[in-house]
């Protein structure tokens, strides 16, 4: 992955920033935005997006052609992401969103596979070790935001593959 995020050609195409009326065109447009948004989040390792700040977001407004996405379009994209569980609103007003370039389930599986390959089942790991530790430096979930990490682990927990321990002094997880 290069240092510079690579924007697709659509990014400099003005109509890309207006929600299209033609059904087929709109589907293409939304899907292009999905890919772009997920790639961007993966590249910058950001998981949260505030719809109210979309106009200042480096991705959602292109100053070079003086176009930006309005809230309506952002919501349309996010809703579509939500449909495939690649995003979820954090608050009830649907202002703040978390974006998962891997769905929570995928994240869980990635983590579990890693633990299994390390032979670290039946042991307790802190959340910090899991996301920032030396052992996971090469893993994709390295640097993952804690909120997202916990949600991914909760999914695993539901499948009986781990237990999340959240107390005041210890935030850890035990894998089975």
């Amino acid at each position: 992955m290069s240092d510079q995020f690579e924007y697709p050609w659509q990014y400099n195409f003005p109509p890309f920033f207006t929600l299209q009326l033609h059904t087929e065109t709109r589907a293409k447009q939304i899907s292009a935005w999905r890919t772009l948004l997920l790639n961007y989040c993966k590249f910058s390792k950001t998981c949260t997006l505030d719809v109210r700040e979309a106009s200042h977001h480096p991705l959602l407004s292109n100053t070079s052609i003086n176009r930006k996405l309005n809230t309506e379009v952002v919501l349309a994209i996010l809703s579509d992401l939500q449909r495939t569980q690649n995003a979820a609103p954090i608050d009830k007003q649907r202002f703040r969103w978390e974006i998962y370039w891997h769905t929570l389930e995928e994240w869980g599986n990635l983590i579990y596979n890693h633990i299994v390959s390390r032979g670290a089942t039946n042991s307790v790991l802190t959340l910090f070790e899991l996301s920032q530790g030396e052992d996971v430096r090469d893993e994709e979930f390295f640097g993952l935001e804690t909120e997202v990490l916990i949600k991914a682990l909760r999914v695993l927990e539901k499948n009986g593959k781990c237990e999340v321990i959240l107390s005041e002094d210890l935030q850890g997880v035990k894998f089975f």
Binding site: P14, P15, F17, T18, Q20, L21, H22, E24, T25, Q29, N66, R67
Partner: peptide, 13 residues
Amino acid sequence: ERCGKSCRDDSTE
């Protein structure tokens, strides 16, 4: 546009 042969750019301009 309805025929899918054009797309719109609705901006301040």
